[in-house]
Nucleic acid binder design. Structure first.
Length: 573
RNA sequence: GCGCCAGUAGCUCAGUUGGAUAGAGCAACGGCCUUCUAAGCCGUGUGCCAGGGGUUCGAAUCCCUUCUGGCGCGCCA
């Protein structure tokens, strides 16, 4: 049930009927009806809905847009009663002014649907996978992961609310060189702890967390590992670290309100033979070839391995990519190909990856790889997040795994709180680089927009408590008569509430959860304004019931959206 | 060199997938609580939407181009 969509469709039908009629009566001449828009004008003075059909038709019909609009104005059937009037305005807009009756159904609809209000069925049960965070288990979760976590989790919730069947997945990079390097780093720390003069690997992980892990292993299992050979030590220590670090990541992500449906292990792809099987298939299909013991993926444009003078790649389409090295070890690219093939083999209609912008060079290759297995590359969508820069005391905080100096997600949650962290990250368009001012975020003041929204919710809860404490009996809000809500502030709030399903639909289709924050701010603002102009707990019983119901409906909408964002809706502040 | 992303008010950013007079928060100033939460409301002003071309009834939005910044272009992941 979507009031605004229903109204738009109805207006659209009436305009199409009028166009057809005008054509058959010879008043307008055109081949086909253009794809015109029925939209809500920014300026309320331009009516409730505006139609731009006349402008789009001008060339075909060889008439001035306003003249066309004037014809349509005569032809549009306004029977049915909800159209107050139609005007021709501006360059040829048809502005529809509606009677307000439809608005009074909105609060009732909100109360009937409750926690489901705003949900739509656009997704029609299609299966969507959202993969995000997927941080390397060699370190701690950092600001980039925090941004990805907020965006990915909210996006997953949003898509589910829009009717998709959603799975959230975390890809564990538990194979490859980095894990070996982690093992070497751990081994060095382990032996240091035992008083040996261990050589720390050149590119090793210097983070204090690695030392901690080595110490934990020693405390738990003793020093006997020292007697084993190096490969054994590395294997045991890296396995131990993986378990510990993954457990810790799950703990922190849980603090952050992020839970995954599936934790998918890269290593399992290798061990099950899926990586090699995918490579064999590429070779069979003629997309890959062997060269000196290694396997290469043929480039799209012939693949002569062309490079510019400075030795750098000319462009992605011209260069063959290595899949399996001469020593038989598959590259990360090979594993990722197998991983994405596996995703689609699992039957998802759409696969969404949330990646850092530093991986953007990988996107085109991955889409192509997917297409080589016969899947539609458009079904793979990669959301690239620009990087997060941390500032403290006005200076850039550099983050480096090598140096081991970075602010972790857990630090952030401790300092700014769970709600603010989630909201702050999802609020911004992923395309924009983000400067995160730690001092600003730490200062728990009203600068943070999440408080503004939460305050509206808490305020409404307080009003309802007040009503009860005054001895008012709260009616069934789904059955209240709202026709007494004639103040413009009340109309604005009902309209804003009616808009939620449209916002959900748009945000889900565009994969842009940050739109929800903009909507929340608008809704909260509209409510605050209403609150300051209309006394809710007034003496008039009918008006009071309607205003309480309207307020409560606003609280439901706020809570529903905050829940999608993984943010609490406090009942008092 | 090639590619991706960005450039909008003093600052941080939106901008409903091409609509009418470009918006919000912060910051500044002035009003509003002896009745529902002042973390709020109301009011005051600020823009060569980076520059230049083009597309059309209409462009911050689409195309081309220049400039600036970020990020990539590996038998790392």
């Amino acid at each position: 049930m979507r009031p605004i969509t229903d109204l738009k469709n109805d207006i659209r039908e009436r305009v199409i009927t009028a166009l057809t009629l005008a054509k058959s009566e010879g008043e307008l001449s055109f081949e086909e009806i253009p794809a015109f828009a029925v939209e809500i004008p920014r300026d309320p003075a331009h009516g409730d809905f505006a139609v731009n059909a006349a402008m789009l038709l001008a060339k075909q019909a060889r008439m001035a847009p306003r003249a066309i609009a004037a014809v349509l104005l005569e032809k549009i059937d306004t029977a049915g009663g909800y159209i107050e009037k139609i005007d021709v305005a501006g360059a040829g807009f048809l502005n529809f002014y509606l009677k307000q009756d439809w608005l009074f159904d909105v609060p009732r609809l909100v109360h009937r649907m409750g926690g489901r209000y705003g949900s739509v069925d656009t997704g029609a049960g299609k299966r969507v996978q959202v993969e995000f965070v997927s941080a390397n288990p060699t370190g701690l979760l950092h600001m980039g992961n925090a941004r990805g976590g907020a965006i990915g989790d909210s996006l997953g919730n949003l898509l589910a609310f829009a009717g998709y069947d959603v799975e959230k997945e975390y890809y564990i990079n538990d194979a490859g060189n980095q894990i070996r390097l982690l093992g070497l780093s751990l081994d060095a720390r382990f032996r240091e702890l035992l008083g040996e003069d261990a050589v720390f690997p050149e590119d090793g992980y210097h983070g204090g967390d690695v030392k901690e892990t080595a110490r934990h292993y020693l405390e738990e299992h003793g020093a006997s590992l020292r007697e084993k050979d190096e490969e054994e030590r590395i294997r045991v220590l890296s396995d131990y670290a993986l378990e510990e670090k993954l457990g810790d990541m799950k703990r922190v992500l849980s603090l952050y309100g992020v839970e995954f449906d599936v934790w998918f292990s890269e290593r399992s792809l290798h061990e099950s033979g899926k990586v090699m099987a995918a490579m064999a298939e590429l070779k069979e299909r003629g997309y890959a070839y062997e060269d000196g013991g290694s396997l290469l993926l043929k480039a799209e444009n012939g693949g002569d391995g062309k490079r510019s003078k400075d030795g750098q790649r000319v462009n992605l389409e011209d260069k063959d990519d290595v899949l399996i090295r001469a020593n038989g070890v598959p590259t990360y690219f090979a594993a990722d190909i197998a991983y994405h093939k596996d995703k689609f083999d699992r039957g998802f209609d759409k696969v969404i990856n949330v990646w850092g912008a530093d991986h953007h060079g990988h996107v085109a290759r991955m889409k192509r790889a997917v297409s080589l297995f016969g899947y539609d590359p458009d079904q793979l969508v990669v959301i690239l997040m620009q990087l997060v820069k941390l500032y403290q005391n006005g200076e850039l905080v550099t983050m480096s795994k090598r140096s081991g100096q970075y602010v972790t997600l857990e630090d952030l949650i401790d300092e700014v709180g769970y709600d603010a962290a989630r909201y702050f990250f999802v609020m911004r368009n992923p395309d924009s680089p983000m400067d995160f001012d730690l001092d600003l975020a730490k200062s728990k003041n009203a600068d943070n927009p999440v408080f503004y929204v939460q305050y509206a919710h808490a305020r409404i809860c307080s009003i309802l408590r007040q009503a009860v404490s005054l001895g008012y009996v709260l009616p069934d809000f789904a059955a209240v008569d709202y026709t007494c809500l004639t103040d413009p502030h009340e109309a604005d709030l009902m309209k804003k509430l009616a808009d939620l399903p449209e916002e959900i639909d748009a945000a889900a289709e565009l994969l842009e959860p940050h739109r929800l924050c903009a909507y929340l701010h608008d809704l909260a603002s509209t409510f605050h304004s209403f609150y300051n102009h209309c006394r809710v707990n007034c003496d008039d019983e009918a008006l009071r019931a309607a205003r309480l119901g309207l307020s409560r409906a606003a609280a439901i909408a706020i809570e529903n959206v905050l829940t999608l964002l993984g943010v609490h809706a406090p009942t008092e502040m």
